[in-house]
Design a protein around this nucleic acid. Structure first.
Lengths: 397, 397
DNA sequence: CTCGAGCATGAAAACGTTTGCACGCCACCC
DNA sequence: GGGTGGCGTGCAAACGTTTTCATGCTCGAG
């Protein structure tokens, strides 16, 4: 039984005042807008001069400048972006291709991209849900001539070939690339290291039987985090048990479902590492429903440190990776590539990361070592007048 | 003390393998790509014929078709989008201007837009963080000639003038417009009605002293929800108390901070209506820290029903408004406007909404009446094999 | 055999900009 | 008083497409 099925089923307009075609007002939107030629005519100059005035690209006499400016304003002239792009072979636009945009992680990535792009006076052409090579390729093709380069995230194995073809045509920054290709710039999250640290932390708290809710198979991020999980176990002389490896889909629901499976595991694990916070949220919810207390009965750690992580009950221990900065850095990297005239840049950035120990893993105080630990108080008490969420906006890339 | 201050402070690359300019490979990205003329030359035909073949826009002999296709493939020809836009005066692109893109609500709106746009074979030019009129206007100006129309959300009072100017130039769909302007199509959330229902529900549960954590002042959505809150009180003969009206910013932090203020209120409210789920999350977190139990000591309701709402502890009672559908409907509406040749459409859609009663408000079973209520079991148990989140994608607009 | 119809194709204009080049004008200097 | 610059401006080409129009060809009917 779906909660809100009834009303929502009819998704088309609930209220819909009728359409009417008013003959009085001139058909809005239709009157083709003023072009540079109209302005030129109105100011009694050539289009060249109008262009020069409006772009400040050459000296123009005060009198003409005045006339042109006045005419442009009177006609409400807005230059045509496509025409400019065509002439300059520069679109001032960055293409962004993502596998998905569900959840807070991607939301933050996009926010970071948007901010950085806006600061640079550019624009963003966005498209998502690309897991297949054809999908990715056709999206890129549709953007050809409208973007100067791409920010591309393609964690799915089968999309790899498309990435190669796009690389040949466009300046590119890869997000979390599966492999580092020479002559490419990429920005990555420390998937392996973060997972390794998170699981190691659980181990150091005394856990020996640790399950993982991984992401979908064939997904690069998921694979790396799984690898980190296994390596941490091995490094601490714990035999990995494949029955403790569950597969999710990076969504809350899938975490919830994994929770059901975990409840049935015998012997039960004493801790669970969820490969992202979204799944951790669903997981904790399900465990609580099953009468299993977090962290008393089972410790949980997530990955991402999405904005809501700290507000959960219990506050979620997780691997902090700044998705906002990831996006911002990708933009910065692409700008570098675009700036490097023809030179082939070979850069690989890995975003800083950190363990954030809150309550869900059961450690009130972190273990000795280099990990950042916080007491419960500092964990949930936002600093000063503004919380970390706002603060993050001020960090530069 | 910020949790993760240290490592994250240095946001620039932690690892950065050096740049090297390989002289061997031809400077990637530089070799200007094949144009339609190159294809024409290679196939020994005119550009007109190439265009005809590639677009299937006129009959071409089998032999020429073959030659052209082969040449296009061999040269890896990708048509230039800007040139096409210029000629057609159609860009196949929708501009999306949002006030912000923080949090799950906007994330879902964008996701809905992206999906609908992709299904229609179009593209999205995205820009956000527009609260001032100038900001909005300059963003729109930069998109002129690159988009066919706009999806525009401008809840801030001061941006109103910019909306008017944009309306004069472009086909437009407004999201949650402040006022309904004739000759405009808009898609709205039932802010007033939803808030009214949520607060009424709290009242029916027996609450008399109900606080609200509102959004920022001057924000259309916030204002409407506040109005609904007040109206519900009045409708049930409860005198509104201005000391119970707190202001937030639609973020988790601001909800958290409002929680601090609520803890100090005397006499304490027995219920709180948070104007969005994000603030509800922060609020509940702060209340729990203060030793106040939700829902036992104070009932809480939110607004939006973001994906994580159902997984919170306690699961959040809230007003369900489908942000994903909101975005999808906006696209559908804009397509209608673009399709209506010059005709002025005057449409106002209001999205369906619903109360989702979970646990945070304290009602195990909803009250009598037309409200959709769910028992705890159905509330948190995802339907069948796939949860509502996935299911939502299948609803058409 | 001639004529017209129909088909396949090419030439060129157009979309709205920017910019290289040339031109005319004025002031200045020997 | 005739060069010499420099300044302000216009003409026209160019960017990469699509599309209108014209043209040449083939084929069938009369």
């Amino acid at each position: 039984m779906l909660e809100v099925a009834k009303k929502v089923a009819l998704t088309r307009p609930a209220v819909r005042t009728d359409a009417d075609l008013t003959g009085s007002t001139p058909p809005l939107g239709k009157p083709t807008m003023a072009t540079i030629r109209d302005v030129a005519r109105a100011a009694a100059v050539s289009t060249a001069t109008v262009s020069r005035v409006l772009n400040g690209t050459a000296r123009v006499s005060d009198e003409t400048r005045r006339r042109v400016s006045e005419a442009a304003k009177r006609l409400d002239y807005w230059p045509n972006g496509s025409a400019r792009s065509l002439i300059h072979s520069r679109t001032q636009t960055l293409g962004v291709l993502l596998p998905d945009i569900f959840g807070e992680f991607f939301s933050e990535v996009i926010r970071g991209i948007d901010k950085a792009v806006r600061d640079a006076g550019l624009q963003v052409l966005l498209s998502s849900s690309h897991s297949s090579a054809e999908g990715l390729l056709s999206a890129a093709k549709a953007m050809a001539g409208r973007v100067d380069g791409f920010i591309l995230m393609a964690p799915d194995l089968e999309a790899e070939s498309a990435v190669d073809r796009i690389r040949k045509r466009f300046p590119l920054v890869l997000l979390n690339p599966r492999t580092q290709t020479p002559g490419t710039v990429s920005v990555s999250i420390a998937n392996y290291e973060g997972a390794f640290a998170a699981v190691s932390h659980l181990i150091r708290l005394g856990h020996k039987r640790i399950a993982i809710v991984a992401g979908p198979m064939g997904n690069a991020d998921s694979d790396e985090r799984l690898r980190g999980y296994r390596a941490a176990l091995v490094a601490h002389d714990i035999e990995p048990d494949e029955r403790l490896v569950l597969t999710g889909a990076f969504t809350e629901v899938s975490g919830y479902e994994a929770g059901s499976r975990i409840l049935r595991l015998r012997p039960a694990p004493t801790a669970v590492f969820a490969a992202n916070d979204g799944m951790a949220i669903g997981l904790i919810s399900r465990l609580s429903e099953g009468g299993v207390r977090v962290p008393d009965d089972v410790g949980v750690m997530g990955f991402d440190d999405i904005p809501t992580a700290r507000y959960l009950a219990p506050p979620l221990s997780t691997v902090r990776t700044d998705a906002y900065e990831l996006g911002a850095c990708a933009v910065s990297g692409l700008l570098d590539v675009l700036g490097a005239e023809g030179e082939v840049l070979d850069l690989r950035w890995v975003m800083p990361w950190d363990l954030v120990i809150r309550r869900s893993c059961g450690a009130l105080h972190g273990p000795r070592g280099s990990l950042t630990t916080t007491t419960p108080e500092t964990t949930s008490e936002p600093a000063q007048s503004r919380g970390p969420i706002l603060q993050r906006e001020e960090e530069s890339c």
